[in-house]
Structures are given as structure tokens and as C-alpha cells.
């Protein structure tokens, strides 16, 4: 019981500090907004009004669903290819020497260049441009995380299993896979954040729908309060994924790492 109370106190304290941080930002925002024109810095109240309008008109849902669908497609492709490439390169030194430098080059090229190229190659293609960008940006991240995971598998554990006559299948399922899971989840988490940002970026420049497009319209029409409202929506969606899905998942798969 005592333990529970102290844990609760700890959580409450942490929540209080985090909320204070956000409150300070809101207060500062409010003070600054009074000094500047709404075109430059809309107040929290104006932003909330714009947000309400976006929700009531249904724009939030339609655009979020479109953006989400694109993110999911590019992200899923990056996950599958990242995983397969990592496994393939780990299995063959030849392929590793051949492909590893290419992936490094792909990763070094800034996303803005990819988006410009995508628009040149695919035009203002509603789905293709964002999906391509997500894939090309997220793939190296997924690959590197999983490849690092494969490299870090403890040979000593495999040796132990060999001495105790474990079969190859048993070694793969009981040593390789569990060692890889945390790296895979970390790839999921990092990849999602990159994928989501890439979608918005690609939609902003090379699409005619989705949250990124809505942002670019708000920008073009000088509706700064809408720009702020969309930003809040973006942050909220990311938070839901990060803390509602990935954080608990990560905690679950690394349960064995927690010290007593």
C-alpha cells in the first residue's frame, strides 16, 4: 500500500511538472499574441476557434484519414523492405558491401531534394509523391535499427545454446528474435515519427489533399490561426501514437531489461 502511495505521488508530481511546462508556454503565447497582429501570431483563443471550426466542418477527419492512410502505406512498405534488406545483408557479405553504401547515400540526401524529385517524377500525384517520400526517408532508419540489432546479437548466448544442443529453429526463435524485438520496436517508433513528418512535408509541396495540403492552403490564404490549429492536431495525433501505442509496446517488449 505504501509502495502504491509513493508511486502515485511520484506520478502526480511528474504530471504536475509537465503540465506546468505547457501552461508556461500557453501564458507566454497569450502575452506575446497581444503584442502582435493575428497574422503573425494568433492568440490561443483564435487558434481554438479555428480548431473548433475544423472539427465541426469535418475537415479534421477527412484530412487526417487521408494523411494517415498515406503514412501507413509508405511506412508499412519501409518496414517490410527495411527488415528484409537487413536480413539479406546480414546473411551475405557481398550484398552488404554492395548495398550498404547506397543506403547511406539515400539517407544523407535531404528530404527536400527527394520531394522535389518526386514532384518532377510523379507530378502533384496525390498519393504517390507522399508515399514515395515516406518510404525513401523511413526505409534507411528502419534498416539501420534492425541491422544494428542483428549485429548486436550476443554470440556467447548462441554458443551456450549450441553446447546444450538447441536446434537451429530453437536458437532463432529463442535468441535471435527476442534480441531483435526491442530494435524492431525502436525502428517502429523512430520510423513512424519520420514517416508522419514526411507525409506532411510531401503533402505541403506536392499534393492536393491531406493535412499538409490544408497547412499549405492556410499558409497561402494567410490564415495563421488555421496553421496553428492544424499544428495542434498534428501534435495530438503523434502523441496518441507515441504514448497510446508505441510507448506501452516498447515497455512490454523490454520488460526483461528492468532491474529489480
Amino acid at each position: 500500500m505504501n509502495n502504491f502511495t509513493s508511486k502515485l505521488n511520484h506520478v502526480l508530481k511528474k504530471a504536475l511538472i509537465s503540465t506546468t511546462g505547457i501552461l508556461v508556454v500557453l501564458i507566454l503565447w497569450n502575452i506575446l499574441a497581444k503584442k502582435y497582429h493575428p497574422l503573425i501570431l494568433p492568440s490561443p483563443k483564435e487558434t481554438l476557434g479555428a480548431l473548433k471550426h475544423l472539427v465541426e466542418s469535418g475537415q479534421v477527419w477527412t484530412n487526417t484519414i487521408i494523411t494517415f492512410r498515406r503514412t501507413a502505406a509508405g511506412y508499412a512498405a519501409a518496414l517490410v523492405f527495411g527488415l528484409l534488406t537487413a536480413l539479406l545483408l546480414k546473411a551475405s557479405h557481398f550484398l552488404q558491401s554492395l548495398i550498404r553504401p547506397v543506403i547511406t547515400v539515400v539517407q544523407i540526401i535531404p528530404p527536400v531534394i527527394w520531394v522535389v524529385l518526386a514532384v518532377l517524377w510523379f507530378g502533384i500525384a496525390d498519393d504517390l509523391t507522399p508515399v514515395f517520400l515516406i518510404f525513401i526517408v523511413t526505409f534507411p532508419i528502419v534498416f539501420i535499427n534492425i541491422f544494428t540489432g542483428l549485429e548486436s546479437i550476443d554470440v556467447n548466448l548462441v554458443e551456450m545454446a549450441v553446447v546444450y544442443r538447441c536446434s537451429k529453429t530453437k536458437i532463432i526463435t529463442n535468441i535471435y528474435l527476442p534480441a531483435l524485438v526491442p530494435h524492431f520496436v525502436s525502428a517502429l517508433s523512430l520510423g513512424l515519427s519520420f514517416a508522419w513528418k514526411s507525409t506532411i512535408f510531401a503533402e505541403f509541396i506536392g499534393s492536393s489533399s491531406g493535412i499538409g495540403f490544408a497547412l499549405s492552403m492556410a499558409n497561402a490564404n494567410l490564415e495563421t490561426e488555421k496553421l496553428f490549429a492544424w499544428t495542434i492536431i498534428l501534435v495530438l495525433v503523434m502523441l496518441v501514437f507515441e504514448y497510446g501505442l508505441l510507448y506501452p509496446l516498447n515497455k512490454k517488449v523490454t520488460r526483461w531489461k528492468q532491474h529489480g
Binding site: L157, V163, N174, P178, W256
Partner: peptide, 15 residues
């Protein structure tokens, strides 16, 4: 049936 006690424990951390 051979068993091996290694210098450093080689335990599966996830089990």
C-alpha cells in the same frame, strides 16, 4: 550429455 559453466553467466535475459 555435456553441460558447460562459462566464466561469465550466459543467461537469456528475456527468459
Amino acid at each position: 550429455r555435456t553441460a558447460y559453466i562459462f566464466q561469465e553467466p550466459r543467461l537469456l535475459p528475456w527468459k
